[in-house]
């Protein structure tokens, strides 16, 4: 038995060496960048997506770098080649897909509609504003222009109801700085605006956290459901790497963990995500229809 073990030792050593050489340490692996669209703020983006990015690096053997990007700058910076993979809202994905043939990888799941979300038009309960007809000549607050569920969805609802937001309401504003969607909700809650364009997900989360109550608002209208945030890849990347990236995302479970900054974190929970799923590009057609109707990018005509 002892002699057998001694004879086995060189083979075992060789096997271990081969195994170790397969795991390249960080810093010696190929480098790539993932552009993450800032949803609320740069700080929040980094906090949410660094652990997920570390996990992806481990799974793919690539050193991924997190690049936080302002929504408005995203298409331009992507076109300039600043990152290989993208994480954006669904409207920015449409722009990147139309203009740069970005490949659809996986759609994020969060909230009651899973891979989808919607936009709502809200007023404060007791304001007397209950229907779309009541919106005329009112003060309205929207989310940022490229927000599918904070601007486009509501803009489209109004157009379909025969209300031109540029003409038929007293005026509309977009909050400045970070956390715009919450500012919309609180802007209506505290009476600074008569009506607001709130993402249904933000309302859901704020009610869930007890920050507002369902009875505080009239929900005047809600849009059809549209896809939520989306991972994409540059068209000329190695297809095998892209597929590995996609599989790493869709196979993520709530129990998967990663060590980051000395902490052992749950990957999905730290990114505030319920999971990822691969949709078909045709699942984004509803959003395309809305963007065309509202004359918004990537279909804007002057």
């Amino acid at each position: 038995m002892k002699s057998f073990l001694i004879r086995l030792l060189p083979f075992a050593t060789l096997f271990l060496l081969l195994l170790l050489s397969a795991c390249q340490p960080e810093g010696t692996r190929p480098k790539m960048r993932i552009g993450y669209m800032n949803c609320n703020s740069e700080g929040e983006t980094l906090k949410r997506f660094r652990p997920l990015t570390r996990y992806l690096s481990q799974q793919l053997g690539v050193d991924f770098e997190v690049v936080p990007v302002d929504t408005q700058d995203f298409p331009e910076r992507f076109a300039a080649g600043e990152f290989e993979f993208t994480h954006t809202n669904s409207l920015v994905y449409l722009i990147l897909h139309e203009e740069n043939q970005v490949q659809l990888l996986a759609t994020e799941k969060r909230g009651r509609y899973g891979t989808h979300t919607s936009g709502s038009i809200i007023s404060r309960k007791g304001s007397g504003i209950k229907t779309l007809d009541d919106l005329k000549d009112k003060r309205m607050i929207f989310g940022p222009q490229l927000a599918p569920s904070g601007f486009l969805a509501q803009y489209d609802i109004m157009l379909r109801a025969g209300i031109d937001p540029e003409i038929d309401i007293a005026y509309y504003a977009i909050p400045s700085g970070s956390f715009k969607h919450e500012k919309v909700v609180y802007g209506v809650y505290f009476g600074q605006f008569d009506v607001g364009a709130a993402p249904s997900l933000d309302l859901e989360l704020m009610v869930g956290e007890g920050r507002i109550q369902a009875d505080d608002f009239n929900i005047i209208a809600e849009s059809p459901i549209i896809p939520y945030c989306t991972f994409g890849a540059r068209k000329d990347l190695d297809p095998q790497l892209v597929e590995k990236f996609r599989l790493a995302l869709v196979n993520l479970t709530k129990g998967d963990r990663v060590t980051f900054d000395g902490e052992n974190l749950k990957v999905l929970a730290s990114a505030w995500v319920d999971g990822y799923e691969t949709l078909a590009d045709s699942d984004y057609d509803q959003l395309r229809v809305m963007a065309r109707r509202a004359n918004m990018p990537p279909y804007q005509e002057f």
Partner: peptide, 8 residues
Amino acid sequence: SAALLKLD
């Protein structure tokens, strides 16, 4: 949407 929030 309001019904779903009430359910939440």
